[in-house]
Design a protein around this nucleic acid. Structure first.
Lengths: 243, 243
DNA sequence: TTGCACTTCAATGTATACACACTCGGCAAC
DNA sequence: GTTGCCGAGTGTGTATACATTGAAGTGCAA
């Protein structure tokens, strides 16, 4: 069987995930298999596979009496998920520093940092958020790889599958506020420092920096929730949040 | 639907997990749905649910062309899984210290430590491994809870579902060797220190201690693999290992 | 003898029918 | 009026038939 595109289970998984993330089905709402199967135009079998998978991803949760419901995330969940990402990326950075990284891969990381510099250096209004988000994701993906550990890489992948735990959770055009733009500058400084620490085999520094880097997301979260609560609907990462 | 015991999917999950963990199906071996369904006396539907779940647990992996195979773990995987557990339990301990733990829960933790003392204090030959393993698991479960974070608790639960990443991975009668008994004493000292650090709100100390505590498992792993390689078959946690 | 293509087969992916448990409404008894 | 029981209905859990694809083996041709 081809594991590529034209599978119903893939269609069901992507469709269902999108339905949940976009907020079309509300947190706490029970997910009816027949309704969803009809809506996504798949049979119940691949749909159930998608439900099980999303349960493991943490987006939905099993109901004791059977079936699933959209999970309702608290602010604490979001904060702790960000903290967890920081801890895991910190570990990746520390392991990279301790175990060493080959010159070519360090060069690749430096190239990514250079690209981020170029994106940020283009002047305030020329800033391409989408492009920054893309390259930022590259940085974080490569960081996970530099750890040299498949176990760590897998784990980071799992945790960051939750939208609000993603490294790019609060990078988007919608929330174009000076405070956010500044946070990108700070974040880029941290990127450089993390790379430097890895190059110089400073494990503890690399770990601390990566943790602090993740906290940037928490700062932005706090800012949105407290200063600009009206922006909540604009940030996709917060669609599942029930404060 | 009752989510309790008499469900075919439960039967399939437990049966399949046991089949993999016991080594009855060898690492790398392809898992045939029809064969397994017959063997476990369930239909393919609940079996497929179990397969999907075990894939998420990390015990088996999907084959590109379809189906699943028993995952083959390298020594690096085991080492990194232990490291990961240390990092996560370290985070749980740090959060417990930083955020504070209620007096009753601290008391409960102290009670567990007391039970471990009693088990270890009974003299060398009276040592009840099974009981120690049980109470040790209690300690680690409560530690995860003391973090006050469902996110962290879930994550620790996931990681420690792999047999060699479990806190009790190398505690068993089979490997009754002086070095192992000594490691229990050291481990218990670390238990006390972790509790003390949490009580005194010393986050960094609590984290460092919990990390080091996990490394005890790595020491025991190294000992088995290098000093007593003939014991490999005796330790259930190593059944999946392909050095 | 070797390589390619076709055929066949086996195993997974999908759809759907059936069985049973949980829920919710109504009715009766207290 | 409230509480408890009962029955219908909805929906998930399970089984199985069918579709589809990947792989292997065989035969023919170069």
């Amino acid at each position: 069987m081809e594991s590529g595109s034209p599978r119903q289970s893939t269609k069901a998984l992507l469709g269902l995930r999108d339905l949940v993330l976009s907020g079309e089905v509300e947190p706490g709402e029970r997910l009816s298999e027949v309704v969803l199967a009809t809506r996504l135009d798949v049979s119940r079998t691949p749909l159930r596979a998608a439900l099980q998978r999303l349960e493991q991803e943490g987006l939905i949760e099993a109901i004791p009496s059977g079936g699933f419901a959209v999970r309702r995330f608290s602010r604490a969940d979001v904060i702790d998920s960000i903290e967890l990402r920081g801890v895991l990326e910190g570990t990746a950075a520390r392991l990279a520093a301790e175990r060493g990284v080959s010159a070519p891969r360090l060069k690749a990381m430096a190239a990514i940092v250079g690209k981020l510099d170029a994106i940020l250096g283009g002047g305030p209004q020329a800033l391409d958020f989408e492009r920054y988000e893309e390259v930022n994701a590259e940085f974080h993906n490569l960081l996970a790889e530099l750890s040299g550990s498949d176990v760590i890489r897998r784990e980071i992948g799992r945790v960051t599958s939750l939208p609000f735990a993603s490294p790019s959770a609060f990078i988007n055009q919608q929330v174009d506020i000076p405070a956010f733009r500044q946070s990108l500058v700070v974040g880029q400084a941290q990127h450089k420092a993390i790379l430097s620490a890895i190059e110089q085999r400073e494990g503890a520094r690399a770990e601390a920096l990566a943790r602090e880097h993740a906290r940037l997301a928490r700062q932005n979260l706090d800012f949105v929730l407290e200063e600009k609560p009206d922006l909540r609907g604009q940030v996709p990462a917060l669609a599942l949040l029930a404060i």
